[in-house]
Design a protein around this nucleic acid. Sequence first.
DNA 1: GCACCGGAAATTGCATGCAACTTGGTAAGA
DNA 2: TCTTACCAAGTTGCATGCAATTTCCGGTGC
Lengths: 235, 235
Amino acid sequence: MDEAAGRTRSERLAAEIAEAIVTGALAPGSRLDEQAIADQYGVSRTPVREALRHLGSSGLVEVRPRRGAVVAQVTADQLAELFVAMGEIEATCARLAAQSMSPLERRRLDALHDAMGDLARGGDLAAYAQANTAFHGAIYAGAHNGVLLDFAAGLRRRLQPYREAQFRLSGRLARSHAEHSAVVAAILAGRAAEAHAAMLRHVTLVESSVEGLLAREVTGERRAARPEGPRSRSG
Amino acid sequence: MDEAAGRTRSERLAAEIAEAIVTGALAPGSRLDEQAIADQYGVSRTPVREALRHLGSSGLVEVRPRRGAVVAQVTADQLAELFVAMGEIEATCARLAAQSMSPLERRRLDALHDAMGDLARGGDLAAYAQANTAFHGAIYAGAHNGVLLDFAAGLRRRLQPYREAQFRLSGRLARSHAEHSAVVAAILAGRAAEAHAAMLRHVTLVESSVEGLLAREVTGERRAARPEGPRSRSG
DNA sequence: GCACCGGAAATTGCATGCAACTTGGTAAGA
DNA sequence: TCTTACCAAGTTGCATGCAATTTCCGGTGC
């Protein structure tokens, strides 16, 4: 039946709404009407409210007191900040991983990296993207720090839509794999500072390539999405 | 009178409960009975539930589905992870601050640091602790990254109880100020890598001094595992 | 004596209802 | 025509009530 029986309705709602957001089914800026969502899922407003609050504290939705919730509107500035933070956290995890990964973890990272080389040469975008998530996840885990792991995972989820777009660029796969090679080599050799630098360089390049896409999307976007309201975003 | 009039009851409740936790009025592990809290604050359970969920996602309380909420129980291992993460984030902010602080921000940081020198020499623990929060906050802000700022502020709040204990140690004030000097000098000169290293060293020293206190506190309450987890797994 | 089992109390999760606030639209006045 | 006041509709915040689950406690069997 429902294998999620142990979880509460609000948890399942939060998971479903989050899925709808990261997959793009709910566009940024969309209003999240409590009653409408409640009707849609056949529950009352109470668990919907809890789910929205939960997503609010994870940054996926923006809850404004007495004014309802909307799918988090990521401005260009905020996206840049997210990418910088992501890069720094990933680089930190890479440095810690170089210091404290177990031999088994290192072997697995190496094997995963090798397998991704085949995927990159084969040009399988979807498979590479999935393996890429596992690759970065392995490095987060290798840092042996649950706090950083949670933070990195949350950031990655928020950046998921923008990150996927980046792989559509031709030639990014081989380049991504080459950058990974530098990271893996440093981690396997235990060269912490080098692992940090290599990962930071990698994510910074991802960021700059995404920024190109974003510039087109944000500035050239038609009114179809209808952002909630042009609030003065001077900062 | 009530300057929090614009905020909702659940927000005020969250702030008050958080205050009670970080000040130690609510001990770690305490059960947080919804009805009891509701009666205590003269509200219904609904806003209490929302406040508890909010605090749950910030890490201050642990909410277990269908089993109620308790003040987050921080084990020795988790505390170590929190300090490591805090140190890495602070160091990252220091490096970014060295790169991107405005001249005004640098002057203000320098002035604050000077003022803290007087407080340290005067031995005013409370004033120094307050200024210390402002000092680190200035560096978070100097990184010009709201994501890292939020993360650092959240971590700092969770570590607040343990951090305060550390200042009670004699001689820590002068030592703290000396370590700050290295950080400030690097930031003002724009030496990013040096700022990173100096801040990491500073926070690591704070961590090790707190670990001594914690060892006594934790073992006094309940027999805990060895403070240093087995990093290299045998098997 | 100890483990196991069953029922009652307590507590959480959710549904429903109402009041307060926000918002969109309309009309009056300058 | 633009601004402002106001009113109505819609939405959120909160209180209350009920059902489901957990927890506690006493009894029973081994």
